[in-house]
Simulated scan of single mutants.
Amino acid sequence: MATGYVKSELVTVFGGSGFVGRHVVRALARRGYRVRAAARRPDLAGFLQPLGAVGQIHAVQANIRNRESVDRAVAGSDAVVNLVGVLYETGRQSFDAVQAFGPGAIAASAAAAGITRFVQVSAIGADPDSDSKYATTKAAGEKAVLKACPGAVIYRPSIIFGPEDDFFNRFGSMARFSPVLPLIGGGETRFQPVFVGDVAEAIALAVDGKARPGTIYELGGPEVRTFRQLMEYILAVTGRKRLLVPISFGMARLKAQVLQLAPKPLLTVDQVRQLGRDNVVSEEAVRDHRTIEDLGIDPRAIESIVPTYIDRYRKAGQFTTPDPTAPRP
């Protein structure tokens, strides 16, 4: 709910109607900012308006490949946030277009408009030397943003969880039908899941001017868990008994070559490459005070949030009591 007081300051949020975007819009509205949610389909973003006061939140059309539409979305803004990204490529929504070219175009538009407060959401693992195209284009996007807006704040989160996430929901749903869950690379890849509400708060703090300009922060939750441990946790919460089967990276790549042909693939070759590296906050970020805790946020653990939305994957929904013999979360 908004505070009731609406500031004159306007923040444009690219990707404002997405999973992270709706939480960012809410966090900004609570602070009293006017919010312009830029999306390819603003007609589908009406659900954002109740997150603020009447007239406080407005959705507009913008395509990051069209500079004119980007300029229109940015015009008159005091700050800009870019959340646009894709987990896999489909048609014109390529990694290069969305994650390399797009951020640079938005940042250049903001710079031309004299906007100095710019927040770019990237990802842990962004690396120009990675063998993953997702990771290299994320790094290219960061470079383009900092070139156009040297004072930009860049956030690299680990996997983000929340009611509409693509991780816990995907595997919770898969466990309903599949007798096995694959452990790619043996399930030893480490993650540091971070709550979407905490990421949104970090972004709002950057808009407030409370993050260090020109800095790349790494955002992770309070615990590091392996892929295997996360699968075991999902099975425990949903009360499912499923076989966890280790699959080598080579075999996973072969399977992904077929799976990635689907309109909404369960797995792609590029995602397999990403699983070859841990997805956790680096020691350098901790040492240099570039973490979510350094922003004054006490990140929430998966135990406090995830059971509230994956309970629907239990045998009889949220009213099912989990099997007492299943591993505890």
Rank of each mutant, 00 (worst) to 15 (best):
V98I: 13
T90E: 13
D129H: 07
V84A: 05
R67Y: 01
I115Y: 01
E232I: 00
V119A: 12
T90Y: 12
G32D: 09
V269G: 04
L146D: 07
Q93N: 11
D43Q: 09
R277Y: 00
T321V: 13
G104T: 07
S173Q: 15
R253G: 01
R290F: 00
L266Q: 08
C149G: 01
I302D: 04
Q120P: 09
I305T: 10
L243T: 15
I124H: 01
R312T: 05
F319P: 08
R314Q: 08
S304E: 14
N169C: 08
V119N: 15
F161K: 15
P150A: 00
S17T: 14
A152N: 05
K315F: 02
A202D: 10
G18Y: 00
V286A: 09
A39V: 04
A2E: 06
S77W: 05
A285C: 14
S178P: 13
H58Q: 13
R92S: 06
A301T: 09
V207K: 07
I297R: 13
A126M: 10
S173A: 14
P322D: 14
P157K: 00
V60G: 11
Y233C: 09
P246Q: 07
G15Q: 09
R328T: 05
T90I: 04
S94T: 15
T291V: 08
A316R: 10
K241F: 04
K133N: 05
Q61V: 00
T238P: 12
A107R: 04
F195W: 12
T116M: 01
V269M: 03
D96C: 02
P246F: 02
K147F: 01
F161I: 07
S122D: 11
Y155W: 05
P157V: 04
V80I: 07
G221P: 02
L244A: 07
V60Y: 09
D198V: 07
L181Y: 08
A110L: 06
R30L: 08
R240S: 10
P246H: 05
I160Q: 14
A301N: 08
D96S: 03
G32P: 15
F319L: 06
K133E: 13
A38Q: 11
V258H: 10
L219A: 13
G114F: 02
A211G: 05
A2Q: 12
D311L: 03
H58P: 04
S8A: 15
R314C: 01
L254N: 06
V24L: 12
L261A: 08
A211Q: 01
Q318L: 00
P329W: 07
R31W: 12
A59N: 06
C149A: 14
E9N: 11
S122W: 06
M1K: 02
S109I: 02
K315C: 02
F191H: 13
A316Y: 14
F14H: 05
N66Y: 10
Q93Y: 12
L83E: 10
F168H: 02
P222K: 10
Q274M: 01
R156M: 05
E232Q: 07
H289T: 03
P103R: 15
Q56Y: 11
L295Y: 03
D278M: 00
L51H: 01
T321R: 15
L48D: 03
G214D: 11
A148G: 06
L83R: 09
P246I: 06
P42V: 00
A204K: 02
N66A: 12
Y134F: 14
G141M: 06
P265G: 10
V224L: 09
E164L: 14
P265R: 05
